[in-house]
Amino acid sequence: MPPTDESTDAGTARATRADRGPGPAVRASTGSDPGASTDCEDTLDLRLSEELIALFAGDTGSRDGTEEGAAYGIPAGFPEGAAYGIPADPPEGAPDGDDLLDRVGGWGPATTPAGVFHLVPVRAGRDLALVHRWMNDPAVAEFWELAGPETVVEEHLLRQLDGDGRSVPCLGVLDGTPMSYWEIYRADLDPLARHYPARPHDTGVHLLIGGVADRGRGLGSTLLRAVADQVLDKRPACARVVAEPDLRNTPSVSAFLSGGFRFSAEVDLPGKRAALMIRDRALRDLL
């Protein structure tokens, strides 16, 4: 069962939508699909009614998102967008207004000590091969458990892409190079909420660093801090960012601690014992 954190520094029906291309793109670690076995747990085990979605989303005000490329988190004309080959047209199905995660794809760049960073929502047709390669790295596969043929990763991604928007799979693009995989998700709407005292709009993160050369040098901590701060900046209703790395994944737990998260508790989740990590809005300037 994949983690909601993953190997930050340790070493996260077929496609029919047009943006997936002709080819056949993380599973949060605590969800459960009533029709699936416990090792295929997923954040998307529940369909929300439109009324509930509207209730949870709330009225957070208007957002621009007008520039082409905003749906990818990279403004039009931004050099990193060109380096990654971001197309001019937003993906089919991009949200037109508020959604459960306040338009992750439109959050824009984060300036970090490591470079300019963007969260770019996954497109299966473009990104499946890359995410599949990362998931088959032994250091990643040990915790995400998504190694195997492309169809394994594809199904995991499509469960999110075809869901109600409570979990958004993204590539982390650093100075124009995709180098990490993220899942930004509504922890309060996730089965994780059964295992800790969740609060409305709690937002969860999963992360894996793709390249071996990027691991073990503090990059995970730097990006975790940047992304958590983006969540708190872009989601005013969210008071906490949470994660639940596997307790066995000591480098990942350390990365969260160095990234401004605090250890809250040990929790027993389906398939693992986890460290509940929290970054509080009220403490963000102290940690």
Results as ranks from 00 to 15, higher is better:
A13E: 13
R14Q: 13
R14W: 09
T16M: 07
T16G: 06
R17G: 06
D19Q: 13
P22S: 07
V26E: 03
A28F: 08
S32C: 04
G35F: 12
A36T: 00
T38S: 14
D39V: 02
C40R: 14
T43Q: 12
L46Y: 15
L48M: 14
L48C: 03
E51R: 14
A57N: 04
D59L: 09
S62F: 10
D64C: 03
A71I: 02
P75D: 10
Y84G: 00
P87A: 04
D89M: 09
P95L: 12
D96F: 08
D96K: 15
L101E: 11
D102A: 08
T111W: 07
H118A: 05
H118W: 09
P121N: 06
G125P: 06
L128Q: 13
L130C: 08
H132F: 06
N136T: 12
P138G: 08
A139D: 15
W144P: 00
V153H: 12
V153Y: 02
D164K: 03
P169M: 01
C170R: 01
T177M: 08
S180Y: 04
W182C: 02
E183I: 06
Y185A: 01
A187C: 02
A187M: 10
A193E: 10
Y196W: 15
R199P: 01
H201A: 11
L232Q: 04
K234N: 13
V242T: 11
E244R: 03
R248F: 03
T250M: 03
A255G: 12
F261P: 05
V267E: 05
L269G: 01
M277Q: 10
R279Y: 05
L283D: 15
L283H: 13
